[in-house]
Simulated scan of single mutants.
Amino acid sequence: MIEGTIPARTAGLIRATALRVGVAPAQLTGVSGLDPADLDSDLTRVPTESAWRMWELIAGFAGPGSGLCATATAGRGGLSAWDYLFSSGPTLAESLRTAMELRAIVTDPAVGWEVIEDGGLLTIRDSVGIEPDMVLAPIEEFVLSLMLRRVREATRQPLVPVRVAFTHRSARRHGFLVDEFGTSRLDFAAPRAEITFLDAGALPTGADPYMGRIMRQYVELTLASSRSVPDWHEQLRHAIAAALSRGDLELDRVARRLAISPRTLQRRLHEMNTTWRKEVETVRYEQALNLLRDTGLPVRSVASRLGYADARALHRAFRRWTATTPDAYRREIITAHRDSSGPALARRGEHR
């Protein structure tokens, strides 16, 4: 499942844009929960929410036109193979359909873009909006201006759109958008974001059919092989588990391990409608089940590994979680395993 994620390379581009406009590296890591080391791969995907948080910072630091900062950062090839899909077919329209079909190589697959031909008009339109309202403006600026640049690169012509539409409201001054798109035909508060060209669909891209097929196959293979890095909630629980194993389970220490402040950690817990205590209890519960099921450690040793003062504390917690005791749970596991393996052992004995 890659829905709810974006490719690490796209996240890396957004992060580079944020650094370019003055956001501090520590602040970026704090709001996104992403490790920069994870952002240089075509096969890794990260939570879409992390990208939204970075876009919020970009918008806050750079203001109107901040989406164009990302476009300036995204040179051809910066978004890997997707940039070359714009010239993968013999005509611009065919190439655009391929690029939009395989858009998951650069974005969340829940983001829908479609290519529409109506007479001489060729439109690239956002068909499904999933971004939060507060960051729609910079994202739309980025996506539409990036489309324009890739279309120009594919056709090797200085195409000028006949219309560009944004769903957000117009800024008081939007001359920077007129300069970027080369037209004053800009519509705001539109139902969908879109960019339209006249008599451009049949323009040749100079594509090599063989290379076009190879590029498409590469993108499809990359999507099939993609994997997600743990989201922030998973990272938090991993950090809590590591703190338990080291015997230093304190909120401040776990926050430092996640490269955020204790206050930010508390805020995120609140946003997820949970608490530090609940998260610690969840990790302890899961680890208790694993240790009792998969090891022969005495209950007192399990209690020690989970940070409890003694076995009695674990007994009280375990009864609260499961309405039974650690010893009873372990006996149930052993009995269930014996019952399930008994028939198999009996069948093996029949063939001796």
Rank of each mutant, 00 (worst) to 15 (best):
P109C: 04
D38C: 08
M211V: 01
Y218G: 00
L265W: 01
W276F: 02
R103L: 10
G342M: 13
R163A: 15
I334G: 02
G30L: 07
R319D: 10
L43W: 04
E153P: 01
T196F: 00
I14M: 14
P343G: 14
E286Q: 15
A62Y: 09
E94I: 00
A241L: 07
G78W: 05
H238Y: 05
G212F: 00
G201A: 15
S32A: 08
R293I: 06
S32H: 07
L79K: 07
R216Q: 14
T205I: 09
V106P: 03
L249P: 02
I14V: 14
H351E: 09
T17F: 06
V135K: 14
P132Y: 06
A202F: 04
A59E: 00
R352I: 15
R97G: 01
I260S: 01
G349P: 03
L292W: 01
A24T: 15
D133S: 03
T295N: 07
T10Q: 12
A317I: 08
E94F: 00
V106Q: 04
L43T: 06
T167S: 11
A81N: 03
P209K: 02
T44G: 04
D208C: 05
R348V: 15
T73L: 12
L203P: 14
L236E: 08
A11N: 09
V31L: 08
M211P: 02
Y308T: 14
W113C: 06
A189C: 13
G212M: 10
A224N: 15
A317W: 09
Y210S: 03
V178T: 13
